[in-house]
Every structure is written in C-alpha cells, then in structure tokens.
Design a protein around this nucleic acid. Structure first.
Length: 503
RNA sequence: GGCCCGGUGGUCAAGCGGCUAAGACACCGCCCUUUCACGGCGGUAACACGGGUUCGAUUCCCGUCCGGGUCACCA
C-alpha cells in the first residue's frame, strides 16, 4: 500500500515539455452538439495557432451512461471538420492511453499518493447515511458532506478495509480561500467553506470526472484547458488538487455556453441539431465551422468569413466573450449561402447533385446546368429539391400565375404572347439559352413590348411556378425543345380554358 | 437559498474615460432585372436601472433588477 516514488517519477518523465498542448476531452454520449464542437474548435485553434499539439481524450468513467460506438461520432465529426488531432485513442501518443477507463490504475496510484500526503481520505459512508445526513440538514437547501470519515483511526480503517466494506476516496479541502485565474473571466476567488470534500475515486474504483481530469491534464502535459463555463465553480477544487500534488496549474479558458434561446443551452434533449444533423440539413462543413467559431468569439475586425486555416492564423483567446451566445439558424443560413457562392461551379454541382436528384429523376436533364442556376439562389442544399421539382413534371398550376401587375400581364395578353411565340420557337434551330433569349427579346421588341410581357408567360408556362431558379430561356434550354414546346402548348390551352371560364 | 459569473439594437458583436456607439444577420425601402435570387444603395433599431468616482462615463466602483452556472459515487 505504500506509494512508489519511482512510478511517479517515470510518469513525470513522460510528460512533453515546452510548447502549447490542448485537448478535447468529450464523454462519449453519441452526440456532438454545437457547443461541444465549438469547444473542440477553440482548443484546436489555440494549439494550431501556436504551432502546438492537439490531442483527443475520451472521458468514459461513467459506466452508467456508456453509449455504444459513441466515440465514432466524435472521431467522424472531428475529421470532417478538419480538427485533426496529434495524439488520441486511435493513433496513440507518448502519454497514452487516451481512454480514461484504460487509465484506471493511474488514478488509483495518484489517489494513494494523496492519501499519503494527507490531502485525501477514505470514506466508508453508505448512500443511506449520506441521504440521511442530507435529510436532517436543517433548513439548508444544500448540505455538504459532514466529514464523518475524516477522523477514522488507522485501526478503524484497517478493520473496515479487511471487512471488505466499499469506500470512496475524498479530497480533503483545507481551510482558507482559493483563488484561481481564468483567461476570460480573470481572477476568481472563493471561500473554501463553499467547497465540499468531493469524491475523487468512486466505490467502483473509477475516478470521478473532476479527479481524472486533473490527473490526465497534468500527465498529458496540457498547457491550456478549454472547457465550458459550467466548470468554473469547480475550478477552485482543481487548483487545490494541483497544489496538493505540487503541480503547475494550466491556463484556464472557460467558455460560456451556446444557447438555443435566452434561457436554454443547446441540447440533445431539446432536439437541437448536432453537427451531423446540420450536414444532413444541407449545411456545408465550412459554414458550420465558420459560424460556430464566431459564436462567442470575435476576431475584432469587420471580416466574418474565415476558413479553418484562416481561423487558425487569426485566432486569439482574448476575443472570446464572457456572455452566452444564442445560436441563430438564420445567420448560419447566411454563412452557408456565402460558402456556397464561394464554391467552384464544379464543386457546387457535385454537392448539389444528390439534392437535385431527389426531385429531378429524368436522366436527360442536365444537373450541371440546373446547379448553375441554383448556386446564387440557395442558402441550404436542402432548399434545392423544392426549387427544381418542376423540371421533372409540370405542376398542375392555376392560371392566376399568369397575371402579374409589375409585368403588366393578363390572361389575354399572355395567351396572345404565347400564340405568337409558339411558332417562332418551333422554328428555332439553335436551342441554346443565348439563342432563346435573343429570340424572345426580339419578339418583344418587334411589338414594342417590355421583355417581361413575353418572358413572364413563357416562364410560367414552362415551369408552372410563381418563382423559379433561372428565367424563361434558361429553363427552356434545360428542358429541351420537345418538352418546352409541349408545355407552351399546354399553357395556351390552359389560358384559353381559363378565359372561356371567365366569360 | 449560499457561492460564482454575466447584462451594448430581435440575434452575433466592436468598443476597453471623451465616438454622430462600428460591422454582420434578420427586417423595411429603392435600384438592377425575363420570375425569384445575387448584387448595389439607403433606413428602422442598443449601452438593464439607480447611485457614486471624474471636467467627462457604455467603459471604473457600489447597489437593485434580470439572466446563467454550480452546490452528485454525472461529466
């Protein structure tokens, strides 16, 4: 039971020194929400900006909440976002293992060390006794552990140990006041009276998050700890632990949460989107990363569009804000639209094609040409199917669509326009957008009409929709001669029926 | 409830004692235009409140209010 100094010396020797080291340490719940992604992103950016090391560690000490294959989602999300790690469970590294359940004996050893230093003690209290203690806690809402086991004698401890009574190891909080420093929040100081003798090692022998975190961050040489602000209140306890071990305290960066609205954090429970949900909803990874980076951080200038690489260049911890940020899907839409517009036509076509094909089944239709019309007009890829459904099949539209005040169109003049346009279209040899446009504009000019007087009825006839990506001629060019002419004739028939019905 | 933290337009935010208080999204209007978009131009809209400190407070201090976090053998 005596601690072995050589063991600790060896562990210390493994710690990489010099250079920035950050980590992302999720617990595998099978869900990577936007807040998690942002935390990972900031940790990654801090490391990359400094030319340091970024590592991934899986915190799976809660046996009751284990989710099958949950780590896969994390690996996948990180990889897709470009948040590459230099060390981690899948690729190893100098301070492994990187999965907490595989480090079990490490925590045990360090807990023993604390025991020997007199900074921790064994507690044999049962759940029942604890519950009782809280129950008779008087009028207080919250009751700290009463240190019932703090003063057990060696003999008593021995006796209980021999009897096989389960126990936990608790941190012994000293008297006084603890002050710690956070890059974002500055100096924070609390009275140790507020701190409980928290459990370090659970009765199942596994460490609590709080303990494992301190041990791992130290043994893995983490220089900058990035985590959510919900850990701000336990930071003093961490400091006390570092002090007890005689270790240097890392730089703390506590980030305020990403909110779904003014009162609630983004959460799985509320159905808020995970990274993968956003991708499935038609968002681009670049846009998500870009937008998320700006939720609670500002580069200072007026520029907002940044690639991951550019973010790594300009990222500065000082730009992280103290207050929570509400996730605004509308603004994400804007970033997505910007990233879509920035794509090459080829890249956009590749990304858009599956979405186009959701509603455009006819293999003869040119998805590249359709994509070209779409690129400036969609915010999310998921906007696409609804916008292009008319290519496949003309919807059963209402002739009221033909009447447009701004275009000065009526049922009658639309019928007239289609009637004089139809034979010209039938005679047109070059069925390209340019030729179609030249023809229709000439037809309008010959009659001293605004282009819209001809374009509008043709566009309505070939699309059957109020608005479309692309105008009359672009749609005709994509539909092809036969289908376009068929739809124009159909339009004439519909107009005649509508006019007859009106009379 | 105790303790900790926060509070600039609807949202994200710049600001760090002296500004007509940036910019972006959203919204509205105009222009462009073969629809819708894109683009261009313009507009509405904010320092939670009350005390100090100061020649001068959005900026510093105190209080109030509001909001968040935390007080587990969860992370």
């Amino acid at each position: 039971m005596a601690v072995d100094p050589a063991y600790f010396a060896e562990m210390e020797a493994r710690i990489p020194r010099g250079g920035v080291r950050t980590r992302f340490a999720p617990s595998p719940t099978g869900y990577m929400h936007v807040g998690n992604l942002r935390t990972a992103l900031y940790a990654w950016l801090i490391a990359r900006h400094a030319g340091g090391t970024f590592l991934l560690r899986i915190e799976d000490t809660d046996q009751e909440r284990l989710v099958e294959d949950a780590a896969e989602v994390i690996y996948r999300t990180m990889a897709q976002c470009g948040l590459t790690h230099d060390e981690g469970p899948d690729i190893g590294g100098p301070v492994g293992p990187y999965i907490q359940t595989q480090r079990r004996d490490i925590y045990g050893r360090y807990a023993e060390l604390l025991l020997e230093k007199g900074c921790a003690y064994r507690c044999f209290c049962t759940e029942e006794r604890l519950a009782e203690m809280r129950a008779r806690g008087g009028g207080k809402d919250v009751v700290k552990y009463d240190r019932h086991c703090l003063h057990l004698s060696e003999a008593e401890i021995r006796e209980k140990l021999d009897a096989g009574i389960p126990y936990v190891i608790r941190q012994k909080i000293p008297e006084g006041r603890t002050t710690f420093s956070d890059v974002i929040f500055g100096e924070i100081s609390v009275d140790n009276e507020e701190l409980e003798d928290q459990i370090l090692i659970k009765s199942d022998g596994l460490p609590t998050y709080n303990f494992a975190n301190v041990i791992d961050d130290h043994l893995m040489g983490i220089t900058h700890v990035v985590r959510g602000s919900e850990y701000l209140s336990s930071a003093p306890k961490y400091n006390l632990l570092y002090e007890a071990f005689g270790w240097d305290v890392p730089v703390y960066i506590h980030c305020s949460p990403v909110m779904r609205d003014a009162h609630n954090k983004m959460s799985k429970r509320h159905g808020d989107p995970s990274y993968e949900d956003l991708i499935a909803a038609g968002y681009l990874t670049e846009a998500v990363v870009n937008y998320v980076s700006l939720l609670g951080w500002s580069p200072g200038g007026e520029r907002e569009i940044f690639s991951l690489r550019e973010l790594a260049e300009v990222f500065d911890i000082k730009g992280i804000s103290k207050s929570p940020a509400i996730f605004d899907p509308l603004k994400l839409n804007h970033f997505n639209a910007e990233w879509i517009k920035a794509m090459t036509p080829e890249a956009f076509h590749a990304a858009a094609e599956p979405w186009i094909r959701q509603s455009v089944k006819d293999p003869a239709l040119d998805t590249a040409a359709i994509a070209a019309l779409l690129q400036q007009r969609c915010e999310k890829l998921s906007d696409i199917p609804e916008k292009v459904d008319f290519f496949d099949a003309l919807p059963d539209y209402d002739c009221a669509l033909y009447v447009n005040k701004k275009m000065k169109t009526t049922l009658e003049n639309c019928r007239e326009a289609l009637l004089f346009t139809l034979p010209e279209l039938e005679a047109l040899e070059d069925w390209s957008n340019d030729a179609l446009a030249a023809l229709l504009m000439k037809l309008a000019a010959d009659r001293e009409l605004k282009n819209g007087r001809v374009m509008w009825p043709v566009r309505v006839a070939v699309s059957g929709k109020q608005s479309t990506p692309g105008g009359a001629t672009e749609i005709c060019a994509i539909l092809g001669r036969e289908e376009s002419l068929r739809r124009v004739r159909d339009g004439i028939a519909r107009l005649e029926a509508a006019i007859a019905a009106a009379e």
